[in-house]
Amino acid sequence: MTASTTAKARILFVDDEPRILTTMRMLFRSQYEVFFAESGQKALDLLKVQAVDVIVSDQRMPGMTGIELLRTARDLNPNAMRILLTGYSDLNAIIGSINEGEIFRFVNKPWSNEDLSVTVARAVAAARTSAALSAATADNIGAPAGPQPGVLVLDDDPSVPTKVQSILGSDYRVFGATTMEEAVNLMERERIGVVLSDTRVQDHPVISLIGTLKQHHPELVSVILTDRADAGQAIELINQGQIYRFITKPIHDNQCKITVNSALKQHERLSQNPELHKRYEVEATTTPPPTATTGTGKFLDRIRSLRSWVKRA
């Protein structure tokens, strides 16, 4: 995995428990160049002098939380992939890590060495492939090619798309769907850049749809808009769906507008730079959707078949 570049990838581990760091050294020293910090502040100090490819941080630390660290690290070292490794986190911490930290993965303690190795390896690969690019293209997003990509709003409540349209204004193309089938139908017809979805639609979790979309159409940007926030779901959504943002209802006009704008920009960035896609790679769905009806399966097939259309865009 390190073969692609001459130097070993650099990984920074941050945890207030030194024994964790010891274990990490044991685990990764042979493959990567590893760095350690026992607090967020020390990690930032280190990042100022040493760029890294991946940051793996604990969430609960005295002084500075993992999210605070990752948010600052994102500005300091934007290319580094960010992984949160934590024993327990409340929902706010998770939402914060998504929206502010833009993390790659959320790993629970205790972890499995194999899974952690795979995750870190993927992060390293993503960081490596996009390293040269990111700095150059960060501010260089060209004007969108063709028509403005649309915003698909997937929600049980049919009033939500209208609300979103009214918040965004008439310059945006907003499409509403109350079922996943409707959503896929729309995506077949229209050029969609951003999916704004609740966590569940018609009593089915949307995670499989979002995960499949991300797998096959990495340039699609997903935003979760829900009032049924749940820590476990949020972790799944980040790990398996690479959701871009997680916002809660009731809808705040400003927040919604900023989020959708930012998501559309992200979509442009991803469309123009396929090299970045690895950075938003999702985990393979470990468990197939529990109520994997024939309908759902059919959706997934149809979603895969969207590929050609997306390529066209």
Partner: peptide
């Protein structure tokens, strides 16, 4: 979970 993590 922290000691459990590194112990495991």
């Amino acid at each position: 979970n922290t000691p459990l993590g590194y112990a495991r």
